[in-house]
Design a protein around this nucleic acid. Sequence first.
DNA 1: CCAAATCCCTGCGTGC
DNA 2: TGCACGCAGGGATTTG
Length: 276
Amino acid sequence: MPELPEVETIKNALVPVIVGRKILDVITTVPTLREPLNQKELRKNIHGNVLAIRRRAKFLIFDLPGNNCLIAHLGMTGSFRVEPEKAPLLKHDRVVFLLDRNEKLIYNDIRRFGVIKNCKLSAPDKLPEEFAVFGPEPLEKNFNARYLHEILKRCKGPVKPFLMRQDIVVGVGNIYASESLFMAGISPLRPGNEITLEECKSLCDSIKRVLRDSIKQGGTTISDYRKPDGSEGKFVLRLKVYGRDGQECKKAGCKGTIEKIRQGGRSTFYCNQCQR
DNA sequence: CCAAATCCCTGCGTGC
DNA sequence: TGCACGCAGGGATTTG
């Protein structure tokens, strides 16, 4: 569930609380998340001052001394919170980072689809080598109509699943893919290679607007997602199609109905009238 | 080579 | 009330 706006919101909340603090120790409570949790490796490398917290794609990067960093991916149900050292652990608390000033940073993940690991960077400010496969950040200038058109013209299948591919553009998940296509008035069923440069411009702009608007609202809370302070993101109130199957289209003057279909094993929501 | 299907995991809602 | 089942979806892996 956490897509780019949710991860960005979490980063923004963690920066003032965590940057400059010292990690003293790491405790794991389960052997694996999506990948095995290597407690030995984590304890050895994840310690010292947190120099910065960055986001790339749906990953958080906690920069540490010695070009070490902690990589965190929240999967579907991951969350972070800060508590006093003595506070009891809750169900599904998977990794605990002991901090200075008698506090701890806790990673909770019901379904264990997340990733917590350490990584050595080639230089400060560099990204982990495994991130080389990622496409552009959707809010950066190198994600634009010309780029998207160039990619999509090689995509024969329906456009929507391609928007969720992290090697094409990062950070767009199931919710924002549906919402962006609605805003652009493009059907999720349209073959990628039939989408014109002009439509790519519209789609590109829509992706940027939807993501920026959601970040402003603190992300989308559907069920599990919470900001680190426990509050909910407000973008759910602005969703136009996601989760609205059977309801009226919200576009002014449109008499369409929101449909729900399955694409690539995921639900897609779209208006049967104003998305062509 | 590309795309669709499957799997990982837990909680929740539904129908019988 | 309880149980079986489907669904939620990020992403790696498998299958077609």
